[in-house]
Amino acid sequence: MKWNAATAVLGLVAPTDALLRFGCARLTVQRLDPLVTPGQNPSPHLHQIIGGDSFNVSMDHPNHDLPSLSTCTSCQFTEDFSNYWTAVLYFRARNGTFKRVPQIAQAGMEGTQGGMVVYYMSDALFDTAQRSSVTAFKPGFRMLIGDASYKSRDQSRDFRQLTYTCMENQGSRSPESIGFPKTPCKLAIMANHRFPTCWDGVNLDSPSHREHVAYPETGTFESGGTCPSTHPVKIPQILLETLWDTSAFNKKEDWPADGSQPFVWSNGDSTGFSSHADYVFGWKGDSLQKAMDGHTYVSAPMLKTQSIAQQNKCVAKDMVRENFDGWLKELPGGNAIF
């Protein structure tokens, strides 16, 4: 899948600089993954999904155009019909049963059912100037960060900035860890997914959904490193923040007898090193380009917003029809713990 505007490689696309931050309610929770296992129903493990309601078992480009096929979005900005998804967090009790960990909204977004907070940035989160030039994503663009099979720190070094924050309160943002927090978190475990920021300028996707994007040559996005020659086009960094409400699972007597942490991803990972997230671009027209061109920080007056009540009403149909709540004897899909 390629973009036919070769001018992007030459850096001739209009520069953009801005930071968008907005909340998205839960669209659906089900065992589907149209990026990694398109057409497979059900997919190997459970995901929580936000965005446009045209999310489906298969979402091939150009047949599946999210803005034209979606009738609503669970995100605050009504022009964003993109889909974003991550694995689901479960608590594993001492008796071996599992319970899905609920999600909570961030401060100022109370009332949002499940979901995440989404960022699009041209510079570091704390940089209010947002001076760097970036190129907005093109229709059909998609990518994946992380690997659902990883279970060691060495493997996780393939990716930068996939972290967790053990939150004491809504203001907690540090320290960040690479694996699951090893001690109880008073409020929640925040999962942070930061996507690569360099694009080859040609391919909208690639076999592993990762080859067409890359990290800067040195450091990380926040350090301002330059893009490699193979991926010369700087794109916005997408950051997803998901708050998993662990407050009901903090009793040590409920944790494993050996004192190890009790949380697992829905793919069976008890280490946290398999953290991963998927993205399928679906902004309407050139709305994202205009928003990034707006030189704004968090606010985006050129975009239309909807209420949290409206966000919560947008849901995708259940195509799997399986139980994933309550106390379960095994994870959905029967995934073994590793």
Rank of each mutant, 00 (worst) to 15 (best):
H295N: 15
A300Y: 07
A291F: 13
F273E: 08
K290G: 10
F273S: 10
M292A: 00
G268Q: 07
K290Y: 08
S260W: 11
E253V: 13
S274I: 00
S266F: 12
S266H: 03
V298D: 10
S274N: 06
P256Q: 12
P262V: 01
M292I: 02
D278W: 08
Q261V: 06
G272D: 09
T305C: 10
Q261C: 13
T296S: 11
Y297K: 08
V298T: 14
W265Q: 02
A257C: 09
W265P: 01
G268K: 04
F273N: 12
D254Q: 14
S307L: 06
V264A: 12
I308K: 00
F273Y: 15
G282L: 04
P301I: 03
S260P: 08
Q261F: 11
A291G: 06
V264M: 02
T305D: 05
D278K: 04
M292H: 05
D278A: 08
K304R: 08
H295R: 15
K290F: 10
K252W: 14
H295T: 12
K284V: 02
T271E: 09
P262M: 05
S260T: 15
K252I: 15
S274T: 00
Q289W: 09
S266V: 03
G259Y: 08
S270Y: 14
Y297E: 04
S260F: 11
G285P: 00
S299D: 15
S275H: 12
W255S: 01
K290I: 05
D254F: 15
A291N: 01
P301D: 07
Q289S: 09
F273M: 14
D293F: 11
P262G: 04
